[in-house]
Design a protein around this nucleic acid. Structure first.
Lengths: 236, 236
DNA sequence: TCATGCATGATTGTATACGATTTTCTGCAC
DNA sequence: GTGCAGAAAATCGTATACAATCATGCATGA
């Protein structure tokens, strides 16, 4: 049987052209290899990926639609530097939509979906134990995947896409303003939410979700971080 | 005092380049001058607006991000032809987010905002009385503006943008599947919602909003309509 | 010394050119 | 007349070229 969450597994491996560049830069942003404010020159991006400025520009344009990159006319593209107010709006949006997504997902969830969620939870826990930058980045990604998987299970492609944008921008905000080690408490909360869903305690699950988002937001602090540089971030 | 709804008034008049083309095509789609399935060739769009394919392509790309245009690799761009399932997802998304937006808006609403909403209501009623294509199109637009204004009042730019996308796509769906004359009952419902907000009956306002959306959706005939697609009509 | 203006370089904005893919047309065989 | 193969046309994908705009630094003068 085909799980509803299978929508997450896209064939990203064989894609080419602008989408590939877009995804590569997005990953770099979400995983903090590129810091907010970093300039993304069209020429540099094109040279890095061995394509023309045309494709580089298309990729940057796409990322600007997702709110991860801000393009300023005649000045260039920069990794988005969300203001504290933007950060609040992002989390307000998540508080607004995630309970609803949770309810939809709970109504359609299958045993294999629950299995998938628990798998993610284990992975998350494993990464939490490790040290270092890479583990930290993977942890951010895993934490986001929990929410994205719920959106996928909900079966609404539109809400799923919206959540992808919100989660990505959240990562950017956490990278900018997060003070403690990301969502260390989030892991346990994810487990609680799954548990509540499994036992059909919908109201409690929504309540937990709202608290979870509030906890992430409460961990934010307004502090500036400096950039890495485009080349270093992509050196293989 | 500056109303929260002032975010709606953007300087669309002086914009140039791809954004102008994008907005022009979007208006044409939302106002039903362009029918779903219509091919939007890059060359044709470029010639129409006296720009190169580069800008035409950028505009079409932007519209594809909004879900109003679907681009098929090596085949071209077409006005989106939302499937019945997509239509349901769009309205499911609206049911999911609009009550939350309504609550946010109610918490921040000012007397001048209420004035603005009532103004929209009057305009809507005026258009309802008229006959003809143009009045019908304007009515769709005015009906959408009510929801967009609420989103603007909520003060969350992210939700506002999302609502803009949902409303635009809703217009597309209504154009495709709507059977009666749009939201003739919607006008009264808009008034009821404003009234409920004004008297601080939040729960009732949300309830009305959900019913309102359900009514619009109930007016849809989610079966196939042969209004367009010359080829499909004769070749299938 | 500091402010101002201009020249120069770098970067983006837009258009055009060329190659790849798809679609359509044509013509021949059956 | 039907069906298929190959050519021709149209359209998209990508790269490159040129124009416009912005940033930088130096010269100049108060």
């Amino acid at each position: 049987m085909k799980s509803a969450a299978s929508g997450l597994s896209q064939d990203d491996s064989q894609e080419t052209g602008a989408p590939q560049i877009r995804d590569a830069i997005r990953d770099a942003i979400v995983e903090r290899r590129l810091s907010p404010g970093t300039k993304l020159s069209e020429s540099d991006v094109g040279n890095l990926f061995n394509v023309s400025r045309t494709l580089a520009r298309a990729a940057l344009q796409a990322l600007s639609y997702e709110g991860l990159v801000s393009v300023e006319k005649n000045r260039g593209a920069f990794v988005a530097y969300p203001s504290p107010d933007e950060a609040r709006q992002i989390f307000a949006a998540r508080r607004l939509v995630e309970p609803g997504i949770l309810r939809e997902a709970a109504a359609r969830i299958t045993p294999s979906d629950i299995q998938h969620l628990k798998q993610l939870l284990l992975e998350e826990g494993r990464l939490m134990g490790e040290r270092g930058q890479t583990a930290r980045r993977a942890e951010i990604k895993a934490s986001g995947d929990f929410h994205l998987t719920l959106a996928a299970i909900s079966g609404n492609a539109i809400m799923q896409r919206f959540m992808e944008e919100l989660v990505a921008r959240s990562s950017l905000v956490i990278a900018l303003y997060g003070q403690s080690t990301v969502s260390s408490c989030g892991h346990a909360e994810h487990g609680d939410i799954i548990e509540a869903i499994e036992s059909r305690e919908l109201d409690r699950a929504c309540h937990l979700m709202l608290h979870h988002i509030a906890h992430i937001e409460a961990d934010l602090d307004l502090r500036e971080r400096k950039s890495l540089g485009l080349k270093e971030a992509f050196e293989l």
